[in-house]
């Protein structure tokens, strides 16, 4: 390790910050290309794969599902973290119950309107996983009490705050439940397959 003599921290160390992260008070944007603008009249969310019942909601139907208000810290792999962000979303646990996800399913593959996809193990989206009370993941559509802006993933995005934020797919279109892992967009382009910020799992071999 190199000590950089003369380097003076300007930010306070904070136990809420995972390693290598800094606190951001704005809300930066990170995505692979242009921001898709999706009309609410055309929006649909599909749930399929290893399910008893395939589901497909339009916006009205989706917004009528039971939702939760949650306050979470989020961590982007580009180094910023933002504390106490406020969201409203439908718990994935509830969606999984409605669809009757098969016990065979091991992963959720989330697909987005821009062609993006990302993979998440089922135990990371089920409520009450080991040591975790309540829901762990949501399909979020309000941010700070307002409709989620397009550049932040609106109309609706995944919210999986305990993993790096690229797992929280923007512009969500389809929730596919599969048996066996299927690395997504960033996971096949040098980024870590799981992405735990507290273990600093940023890149493939971290």
């Amino acid at each position: 390790m190199i000590i950089n003599e003369g380097f003076k921290p300007k930010r306070k160390a904070n136990e809420k910050l995972p390693p290598g992260q800094y606190e951001e008070t704005g809300f930066p944007v990170l995505s692979l290309g242009p921001t898709p603008k999706i009309d609410l009249g055309e929006w649909r969310l599909v749930v399929d794969g290893l399910v008893e019942k395939e589901l497909s909601w339009d916006w009205k139907e989706f917004a009528a599902l039971p939702a939760e208000d949650v306050t979470k810290d989020i961590h982007c792999v580009t180094k910023w973290s933002k504390f106490d962000t406020k969201w409203r979303g439908v718990p994935l646990d509830h969606i999984m119950d409605l669809a009757g996800v098969s016990p065979e399913a091991t992963h959720l593959i989330a697909h987005s309107y821009d062609g993006y996809s990302t993979n998440i193990p089922i135990e990371d989206i089920r409520a009450g996983g080991p040591g975790k009370a309540g829901s762990q993941a949501w399909v979020a559509y309000l941010y700070d009490g307002k409709p989620l802006e397009a550049e932040h993933g609106g109309p609706a995005r995944l919210l999986v705050p305990h993993l790096y934020f690229w797992k929280s797919a923007k512009w969500l279109k389809r929730l596919e439940f599969v048996k066996g892992d299927k690395p997504g967009f960033w996971e096949t382009r040098g980024y870590h397959n799981y992405g735990d910020p507290w273990k600093e799992q940023r890149y493939t071999n971290d």
Binding site: I3, F7, A13, P19, G20, K79
Partner: peptide, 16 residues
């Protein structure tokens, strides 16, 4: 690349 700086007290900062 990611750059990492370490202050004499052990504090680290990373940026891309």
């Amino acid at each position: 690349v990611d750059v990492r700086l370490t202050a004499p007290g052990g504090y680290m900062a990373e940026r891309s």
